[in-house]
């Protein structure tokens, strides 16, 4: 349906594209990390796309692959009803990507969440703080190598009931042993 959008991309900035595809009716553009801001700007401003709405911004952690992270943008055009998914790979040793807050204000909190939970930094973000976890939290909990049942409590009773045995059992029977 949104093949026209991909055509605009391949006509306008072909050098930024890595791969174009379609899956279950959703058009996907995998783009280079250093050009993602240009691609998003074209999608927003081009007369044939007019992607004026950032539906979602999130990150996927492909632990063990390279690049490890993938930042995913879901865009929609309220004028044409088109949807498109833009993805960009981000390596583990340098998890930085350009911020989209200057294009859509909706990106502000979404990028804060992505930073909070995955540790991908967004360059140019006006206020990149944690949004869900507390400031004293260490690490990024949705990364696949974050210990499964690690807790960082802010407050405990001195005589709080121990939860060690239960947690040990849970870890033992966990289906996800890959990251331990």
């Amino acid at each position: 349906m949104a093949q026209a959008v991909l055509d605009v991309l391949s006509k306008t900035i072909p050098d930024a594209l890595v791969e174009l595809g379609s899956y279950l009716g959703d058009e996907i553009a995998l783009v280079r990390r250093d050009r993602v801001h240009d691609v998003l700007a074209v999608l927003r401003d081009h007369d044939e796309t007019k992607m004026d709405m950032l539906v979602d911004l999130t990150v996927v952690d492909y632990l063990g692959q390279s690049p490890r992270f993938e930042v995913v943008y879901h865009l929609r055009s309220t004028a044409f009803g088109h949807r498109v998914r833009v993805k960009a790979g981000v390596p583990e040793d340098d998890p930085v990507i350009a911020s989209a807050t200057d294009l859509w204000k909706a990106a502000n909190w979404a990028e804060r969440e992505a930073w909070d939970l995955y540790g991908v930094r967004f360059e140019g973000h006006p206020d990149l703080r944690r949004i869900l976890m507390y400031a004293a939290f260490e690490g990024h909990p949705l990364r696949k190598d974050y210990p499964q049942n690690a807790r960082q409590p802010l407050v405990r009773r001195p005589d709080a009931p121990a939860t060690d045995a239960l947690t040990t059992t849970l870890r033992m029977h966990s289906h996800d042993r890959r990251v331990e």
């Binding site: 004293a136 260490e138 210990p147 499964q148 049942n149 690690a150 807790r151 960082q152 409590p153 802010l154 407050v155 405990r156 709080a160 121990a162 939860t163 060690d164 947690t167 870890r171 331990e180």
Partner: peptide, 23 residues
């Protein structure tokens, strides 16, 4: 008591179980 983070707030060494163990 919790006025603003005196007695009841755990310090950093107590707080972070990197090994995944829960207190």
């Amino acid at each position: 008591v919790l006025p603003d983070g005196t007695s009841m707030v755990l310090d950093k060494a107590q707080r972070m179980p990197k090994d995944g163990k829960v207190r």
